[in-house]
Design a protein around this nucleic acid. Structure first.
Lengths: 217, 217
DNA sequence: GGCAAACACGAGTGATCACTCGCGTTTTTC
DNA sequence: GAAAAACGCGAGTGATCACTCGTGTTTGCC
């Protein structure tokens, strides 16, 4: 009612120590979420993983959901920052194989370094707020993919373009799981290459280009 | 110790009513697992969905895990029965597009009719026993896919064949999610067709056949 | 140095969940 | 038709979990 405290109910001043604790707690939460999933993870387990008391955890987060939300938001920002430049106009003009490299590689790298991301964004067990964020991200990426597809195949109907973009994204998600499951090293690299081959062969006909890739290996 | 009760600790005689209750409980469990996931589903919620008291539920299942296991086992049997004939030698000799129809369609149909299957087999939240079953199923399907691939491209190394089979399966799983998300009807059919197109274009080069499919639509 | 605010703790609290128990009802068996 | 066995119930029980609170410690500021 009084116009002063408009929308900061918590004008809490954080000390450097507090910021460190938050980062430490989020790291611990990432590990535990990753290992057990959101629902099966207890807040006490997160606190224990962070070598901190439950009370300390609740000094920085109002509830369990808020931990996942903050973690998700930070990952989302990090991802947008690291990957935002992939869908630039100049990259959009690249020939298909190179464009695949430019778009796929950073996405793969991000998910390899942050396996929590998939765990949080994937399960139907996550609270509503995270699901919303995920939907927004998904819609954004899908729009980008549609734009690219529209650039390579201008004659497509909107429905066809949407379906192809969805399928492209689904293939990527499926392949991403495989890549993460593969042991780091040459095997993972080969899996990534295979995934790109799939996408290339699927999308090549759109551009009217015949498939010129030889059988793998 | 006494040699008589060798390995039936429960020589329980079931009446017809009991069998009906079990089926009813499993159906209810399927709906609730599907909606909320395994961990977030309470046994009381299953009983309520089945219009039955919690005590009645525990007359037929020793614990929550057993419900998921029984459900998973029944689905697995149903699936093997309905789909076991897909990988027959005569189907294996079919040209690629027809063989894709024969293998993909029943798998899609099964998952459309039993969406719980994916929900149970997918989450890392499920208890160990289901995960084992899933691994076994996965390994079996993968072996079948490898066999098919070996038939189409005999010259491949074992590692390459394994990688391609894995990728094929991953593509299918990703596409399956899309298909289930699409509203039943022409849109779903189009998505299925698109998924087959992906697989066809990916696997065609293995057979040395050039891709002859025109751009979709 | 002294005061206030932020930080840290961990036993405690209420809610929820998986699961049990005692008792009443229906079905099978002889 | 009566004993036995299977079925059905729902309040109750112990464990676990998300979250709190009272108290003590550290940090920033004058």
């Amino acid at each position: 009612m009084s116009g002063d405290v408009s929308e900061e109910p918590k004008p809490r001043r954080r000390q450097a120590r507090g910021e460190r604790r938050i980062a430490q707690l989020l790291q611990a939460a990432a590990r535990v979420f990753c290992a057990s999933g959101y629902t099966a993870t207890s807040t006490n387990a997160i606190a224990r993983e962070a070598s901190v008391s439950p009370g300390t955890l609740y000094q920085y987060f109002p509830n369990k959901e808020a931990i996942a939300i903050e973690l998700g938001e930070r990952l989302l920002n990090e991802m947008r920052e690291a990957h935002g430049q992939a869908f630039t106009p100049e990259n959009l003009a690249l020939p298909l194989p190179e464009m695949l490299d430019v778009v796929v590689d950073p996405l793969i790298a991000f998910n390899c370094e942050n396996p929590v991301f998939l765990a949080l964004m994937h399960g139907s067990e996550v609270p509503g707020r995270i699901a919303e964020e995920h939907d927004a991200l998904h819609a954004g990426l899908l729009a980008s993919v549609q734009e690219v597809i529209g650039h390579y195949a201008p004659g497509l109907s909107a429905a066809d373009r949407a379906r192809i973009a969805n399928m492209t994204f689904a293939i990527f998600k499926g392949g991403l799981g495989l890549v993460l499951a593969a042991p780091e090293g040459p095997e993972r690299d080969a899996t990534v290459a295979e995934l790109k081959a799939v996408l290339l062969r699927y999308l090549c006909p759109l551009a009217g280009t015949p498939v010129t890739t030889p059988p793998p290996r």
